[in-house]
């Protein structure tokens, strides 16, 4: 975690948060494989606290420079609220179709390839986001509802702070994981950006998580 995290979390809270995320992403990996046959590897989540106004720069930094991407964004609402952003490098949609839509490739759907690619990205994104957030909120005894996911092809370099659900002066927690699909060589990033008002709840929920073992 980074310096700004010191302002928001105690060191114990940071440790609990990291462990909760480790467990959540680990369980999501296992359950995606067992339940819906998606073999995906999620890296150890990297947690940072970022000021709203610094988010655009932060993304470009984290994305290793490739700023034109397919972005699937989805708001989630519960005590744990915010925005999930799933980022695939452009071109990934072609690989994902091979992985995900074999039954569609045989002509089940009467649509052009662009639509099929876009809808595949949205479907994969929706399930990945749902799995990760579902596991986090399950561990923290919350449950959330979601907006339908939206796909935007975007140049991150041009995104402004107003794009994000966080005031410029508020803190956001960014939870980042790199995921890789095993059968196809596709990598992407998942960011969960939580609103400041979730932070208060999160601190309590982390304590309750720990106390549940006593």
């Amino acid at each position: 975690m980074n310096a700004a995290a010191e302002e928001v979390f105690s060191s114990e809270e940071k440790d609990i948060l990291q462990e909760v995320m480790n467990i959540a992403f680990g369980q999501a990996t296992a359950e995606l494989a067992e339940v819906i046959d998606i073999f995906v590897i999620l890296s150890v989540p990297n947690i940072k606290v970022v000021k709203g106004r610094d988010l655009p720069g932060y993304f470009i930094n984290e994305m290793d420079g490739s700023s034109v991407v397919n972005l699937i964004e989805q708001n989630f609402l519960g005590k744990f609220s915010g925005q999930a952003m799933l980022i695939f490098p452009s071109g990934a949609e072609k690989e994902l179709i091979k992985l995900f839509n074999q039954e569609n490739a045989e002509g089940t759907y009467d649509v052009d390839i662009d639509t099929l690619e876009q809808e595949t990205l949205i479907e994969v994104g929706n399930i990945l986001i749902g799995a990760c957030i579902g596991k986090i909120t399950e561990l923290l005894s919350d449950f959330v509802t979601y907006d339908p996911p939206r796909l935007v092809v975007q140049d991150l370099a041009e995104s402004s702070p107003s794009h994000f659900p966080v005031d410029e002066d508020s803190f956001a927690i960014s939870i980042r994981t790199v995921f890789r699909f095993e059968q196809q060589n596709v990598e992407g990033y998942l960011f969960l950006i939580t609103k400041q008002r979730s932070i208060k709840w999160l601190k309590k929920a982390l304590q309750s998580f720990l106390e549940s073992f006593m």
Partner: peptide
């Protein structure tokens, strides 16, 4: 002890 309890793990 792990959260990722896939069969192959």
């Amino acid at each position: 002890s792990t959260a990722d309890i896939q069969e192959k793990v």
